[in-house]
């Protein structure tokens, strides 16, 4: 039994209450998708970013806004288009006639939650600008470095259907996202409920903040102390390593992927109010954290094989620890 962190034991119990409140709040708006809501929360707590691949109109923006509003933090939205410039995202320094000096006008990236719609429509340069700031958590313009807000989370969407005139994210950059999820259409009953509840009114209007930004930042710090037992560590690494030797995979999960999975697992444990990570956390998150980081062999891809199936295969072939 060992822990990787030796920070003071966080009070996960109290954090968990807050997290549960946020989750309930968001789920009340984004109906019928508790799993996606939870994943978004996990990404927020794990200081990660979310790549949502889905068709328009299933509630991507709603999810981002509901999350932002629940924790009473800022949210901005960028609609990516082919002519969007990097400065449109990061901000620009302009001459202010009033003060007679150059002043920095922050771009939409300076918000707690940034919703990047159809990120694949922008040119590579603009994409890179966003991805860099995601990784660095700061923006450098004209020699000045501007720290981004905390927490900072990008929820980027991609439309997997329309590919014409798009610049799909290169594989090397996809792993800047902690998770890739798809929301999917709601279940019939949920859709009916959505109609009835939000038929006319603004769904977001009903949301009240249930936590403060500071609480979320505390939670993020607290999560670093969630305990990971050695068998779980080994299991987690085994999962990542197994993707590298899988016959259908060209490029498997990197050590960065292992780290991402570990962070996500810790966050997931905290969301459930646990102070330790279980193999179930790893198993449950691997299908969201790992697939978009894999590059399949061309023949496997042609055969219609999909990275999620590879991960499922890997998980199915690895013995899970019981103690």
């Amino acid at each position: 039994m060992s822990t990787t962190e030796h920070l003071p034991r966080p009070d996960i119990a109290s954090v968990a209450d807050t997290l549960e409140a946020i989750e309930t709040n968001v789920a009340a708006v984004v109906q019928g998708k508790p799993e996606v809501v939870r994943l978004a929360l996990i990404a927020l707590l794990a200081e990660g970013h979310l790549l949502v691949e889905d068709v328009p109109g299933v509630g991507k923006t709603l999810l981002a806004k509901a999350l932002a509003r629940s924790v009473d933090c800022s949210v901005s939205r960028v609609q990516f288009t082919p002519d969007l410039l990097p400065s449109d995202v990061t901000g620009v320094t302009v001459y202010s006639p009033d003060t007679g000096a150059f002043e920095f006008r922050p771009g939409p990236v300076f918000a707690n939650i940034v919703l990047g719609d159809e990120i694949n429509r922008a040119g590579p340069k603009t994409q890179s600008a966003l991805l860099e700031s995601m990784e660095e958590r700061s923006v450098t313009i004209d020699g000045h470095t501007h720290e981004l807000a905390q927490p900072f989370m990008v929820i980027a969407t991609q439309n997997p259907i329309e590919l014409e005139g798009t610049y799909p994210l290169p594989e090397a950059q996809r792993d800047r996202f902690l998770m890739r999820v798809s929301i999917g259409y709601p279940h019939q009953d949920d859709e009916l409920s959505i109609l009835r509840t939000h038929g006319g009114a603004d769904r977001l209007a009903s949301i009240r903040p249930v936590a403060e930004v500071a609480t979320v930042v505390d939670a993020i710090l607290a999560i670093r102390g969630v305990r990971v037992a050695e068998p779980v560590e080994r299991y987690l690494i085994a999962v990542c390593r197994a993707t590298r030797s899988h016959p259908e995979v060209e490029l498997g999960a990197s050590p960065r992927a292992s780290l991402a999975l570990l962070r996500a697992a810790r966050a997931a444990a905290a969301v459930e109010g646990r102070e330790h990570v279980t193999p179930d956390d790893v198993k449950g998150l691997a299908p969201h954290v790992l697939p978009h980081r894999l590059i399949l062999r061309p023949d496997a891809e042609l055969a219609g094989q999909d990275a999620r199936a590879v991960i499922a295969d890997v998980l199915d072939g690895l013995p899970a620890p019981t103690e």
Binding site: V228, V232, H276, T278, T322
Partner: peptide, 11 residues
């Protein structure tokens, strides 16, 4: 199961 896992992995 939760308790068992707490014992196994929580210490």
């Amino acid at each position: 199961g939760g308790l068992v896992q707490a014992a196994a992995f929580g210490g």
